[in-house]
Design a protein around this nucleic acid. Structure first.
Lengths: 219, 219
DNA sequence: AGGTCAATAAATATCGATATTTTAATTTTA
DNA sequence: TAAAATTAAAATATCGATATTTATTGACCT
């Protein structure tokens, strides 16, 4: 039916990915009513795939569902942003420490590789960098041995990205040298220094967190 | 259409609640294929509500969905159980500490009340106690000011209950005096002693955790 | 004018039928 | 005989139509 990455996917999955992207980028504004008929027409598909996609998006906390009253894009607020930030700090630190504790040569190589790809992506443009940036951060955590924890972190990462887009009206970057922070994290991890790595990671998040928080208050 | 608690609810919601309960109690065994047609017949409803309910259950990590290949009840494993336990410890401690930090007279009264109801429920039977027990534990956390955190905790609580049921073939209880542990937690919270309260809560969980872990290994 | 109630419009939720895809069984081929 | 290809069966996914529910409008009464 539909084809994504050369693969056949269901209409539901296509709808899910499209709607997800639209909410993350702000094309569907926070709090907006999501009418089945409109989405159905926009996605050129039936009501069932749309409803199912929306149901799936509630898992990701990107859509709210009220029984008998339809769906709406999850509302955004500074309080919610702070919450996400606070949860990320706890969960990513836990995941990072577990990953380091279980470190293997193979994992470290994966890290170095994803770090390299991120630097390369930065030269290519915003979109490739965004993808590679998430991949790098998830690679830091994906040796934790805890799939649920990783799922939570990935979910919270995306929710955070949404606020970045909301704050900027699209992907945008600060002048501050993020590359150096990434380098420090990577080095600490390779060194096997969990305390330093955690500290670097949290500092990294605090920097972007403060920056975004400031911009969001202005809205 | 359907009526639950004197309220009108959608077929989707009815299906959601029923299937949820069946998975938590083990009536639908871990890993089992969930065929739409079978569920549709069992619930005497259409395919759409069933599919939507299953999609919603993936949020709760109670159902797995594989594109084009249907749904299955989430598999269970000792590793997964340990993961849930480990996450609960981190998240519930955080929620509890935040709740205590924001303590109000009104919250404390709610706690005392739910504690009382739990004791009362224990006399009435297993089912009322189960409900009241969850209510008490959630009340401990529901002053955290962090809806997402509370949602995670509630989700993990349910996943843990599922393992309890899996281990026992139904609700069952140890001889050990759980009531005393609850009392200690409540008192520490009322006292405003966050450290003691956290310690008590975690000990409480560790006790049941070890107990269940032992039983689960025997399966 | 303000508020209630009924009628209408809009949107959600659900059903039943059908198309598509996957899985299983069977036959063919090397 | 084992692997590959074909066919048949089963299950998933999707559509289009309809029933239900909620939201809106405007008349009516006090």
């Amino acid at each position: 039916m539909n084809v994504i990455d050369g693969k056949d996917v269901s209409a539901t999955r296509t709808a899910y990915l499209t709607l997800r992207d639209m909410i993350l980028t702000g094309a569907l504004p926070a709090g907006q009513k999501l009418k089945i008929e409109e989405l159905r027409a926009m996605l050129a598909t039936g009501a069932s795939p749309v409803r199912e996609a929306l149901s799936l998006l509630t898992s990701d906390m990107l859509v709210e569902r009220i029984d008998q009253r339809g769906f709406r894009a999850a509302p955004a607020s500074l309080a919610n942003f702070d919450e996400i930030f606070s949860l990320r700090c706890v969960l990513e630190e836990k995941a990072l420490r577990q990953s380091i504790a279980a470190a293997t040569a193979e994992w470290e190589e994966r890290l170095v590789l994803s770090h390299h790809r991120m630097k390369r992506g930065a030269e290519e443009g915003v979109e490739p960098f965004e993808t590679a940036h998430k991949a790098f951060h998830m690679a830091l955590l994906d040796n934790s041995g805890s799939p649920m924890l990783e799922r939570f972190c990935s979910q919270l990462y995306d929710l955070n990205i949404r606020y970045r887009n909301l704050a900027a009206g699209g992907p945008n970057y600060q002048k501050r040298n993020i590359a150096a922070e990434h380098e420090m994290i990577l080095n600490a991890v390779i060194r096997g220094d969990a305390d330093a790595a955690s500290a670097c990671l949290l500092t990294h998040y605090r920097h972007t967190g403060d920056y975004l928080s400031e911009r969001l208050t202005k809205l």
